[in-house]
């Protein structure tokens, strides 16, 4: 029981730290790291939920849900990283060439 409690507190802290980082960090990469931490916190609570307190009846549905969540999380991370890199690259390039053909909407 106590260990479960510990993991829950740990998970909540992770969620809070991640959310705080997402709100207050300025670097885009760090924001993306923060989202990943938040996700880890949520997954941890989910797994603890499936973890029977007496260790006997283990619910495997949360395991499947977390596996799904991890894959979704890596997908969103990849897209966010690409966008962040593109933005940075554009900023540097626009320092060189002042205007680029902004042809329409």
């Amino acid at each position: 029981m106590t260990i479960t409690t510990g993991y829950i507190i740990s998970a909540l802290l992770l969620f809070g730290i991640g959310m705080n980082g997402l709100m207050t960090c300025s670097h885009q990469l760090r924001k993306i790291l923060a989202v990943n931490l938040m996700a880890s916190g949520v997954f941890l609570i989910l797994i603890v939920t499936g973890f029977g307190t007496d260790g006997s009846a283990i619910d495997h549905v949360p395991h499947a849900m977390v596996l799904t969540g991890i894959v979704i999380s890596v997908s969103t991370t990849a897209l966010a990283l690409t966008l962040a890199c593109r933005i940075q690259q554009r900023l540097n390039r626009s320092a060189d060439e002042t205007a680029e053909g902004n042809d329409d909407d």
Binding site: V35, A39, I45, T76, L83
Partner: peptide, 24 residues
């Protein structure tokens, strides 16, 4: 465009905050 990429990244981050909150 640069503006749409910036907007898209912000959209993605807000959306992730929203969906993680939903998942929680």
């Amino acid at each position: 465009k640069h503006t749409s990429e910036v907007a898209a990244l912000r959209y993605l981050l807000v959306s992730l905050l929203g969906s993680l909150s939903y998942l929680f």
